[in-house]
């Protein structure tokens, strides 16, 4: 539908939107960029190649990748169950999925730490059964990031699954496909883009996550120190150069992830249009 050009308010909303966007987002972000430009390339590289920085990037990306993968699998199962299988209390559980979105990260952080520490309710059981300690280890970070990432996957897969025309599956069945074949050849290809998008969203959020991670991580340099924490540590030591350089590297990663997610989503929309 062509947009009508008689609608009032184009100039004021355009003016205010751009002004506010520049003031709150663009100018501060470019300030950081300019700040980094003052560093020489050698300085920049020196900061980023410091062993502790490399270790923290490895930890942040490794845990975020692992957590997003687990969240993608679990989220897929949860979305499938919530859409396809009837069971009592379903609506309530469905509503709860968004809790990690709404719960302040500091609250999530201290609760997860309390539950998963070696003396905590879950931590103790896991420790006794498997001998594995979760909290204050990189594994703790993974647990916190699964918590944060889960709703991203469920909420991206769920609507696609709801819109998925079951007639396609019936057609597959009528053509002689087994349920498993139908799942692999009909259902999965239709849900995969949404699952990947959910995974990417969870990963992007996980890489920059701070609040829910720091209480459970243990924050040992080289072992369980995430990048955002390292930035704060540098700031507290008045190492602005270090903080800025690491921050810029993180920002570039965020941009790339945002770009990836946007193209994934438009791909998803185009595919959706074909259904």
């Amino acid at each position: 539908m062509p947009q009508s050009n008689i609608m009032p308010g184009f100039r004021p909303t355009m003016g205010f939107t751009l002004f506010y966007l520049a003031l709150i987002v663009l100018i501060p972000l470019s300030a950081m960029l300019l700040k980094t430009l003052r560093l020489s390339w050698e300085q920049f590289v020196a900061v980023l190649t410091h062993a502790r920085v490399i270790a923290s990037f490895k930890i942040s990306f490794g845990t975020a990748l692992l957590a997003a993968t687990i969240a993608a699998v679990l989220g897929f199962i949860i979305a499938w169950t919530l859409v396809r299988y009837p069971f009592p209390g379903k609506k309530l559980f469905d509503a709860l999925i968004d809790l990690p979105f709404a719960l302040p990260t500091a609250v999530a952080g201290i609760v997860l730490a309390t539950l998963y520490e070696p003396r905590g309710w879950i931590g103790k059981v896991v420790m006794e059964v498997t001998g594995v300690q979760i909290a204050y280890k990189p594994l703790g970070i993974v647990v916190a990031l699964i918590f944060i990432g889960l709703p991203f996957v469920v909420r991206t897969v769920e609507p696609v699954l709801q819109e998925l025309d079951t007639a396609m599956e019936e057609a597959a069945a009528s053509l002689g496909a087994s349920r498993w074949q139908t799942f692999l050849k009909v259902i999965l290809p239709n849900l995969l883009p949404a699952t990947i998008t959910g995974f990417a969203l969870a990963f992007a959020r996980g890489v920059g996550e701070y609040g829910s991670v720091i209480f459970i991580a243990g924050n040992m340099p080289y072992v369980s120190e995430v990048v955002p924490l390292l930035i704060i540590t540098k700031l507290e030591q008045y190492d602005y150069t270090g903080a800025t350089a690491i921050g810029l590297a993180m920002l570039i990663v965020s941009f790339l992830l945002l770009l990836l997610i946007n193209s994934l989503q438009s791909w998803l929309r185009r595919r959706g249009g074909q259904l």
């Binding site: 939107t17 966007l21 987002v25 663009l26 501060p28 972000l29 300030a31 950081m32 700040k35 990260t105 992007a204 959020r205 890489v207 920059g208 996550e209 701070y210 609040g211 990048v227 955002p228 924490l229 930035i231 704060i232 700031l235 602005y240 903080a243 800025t244 921050g247 993180m250 920002l251 965020s254 941009f255 992830l257 945002l258 997610i261 946007n262």
Partner: peptide, 22 residues
């Protein structure tokens, strides 16, 4: 414009604080 409005979603909160400190 839509992408720029969404940008703060994908920036780590720590960086959101850092830019104002800078």
């Amino acid at each position: 414009l839509i992408t720029l409005i969404d940008l703060p979603f994908s920036v780590s909160p720590v960086i959101a604080g850092l830019i104002y400190v800078l």
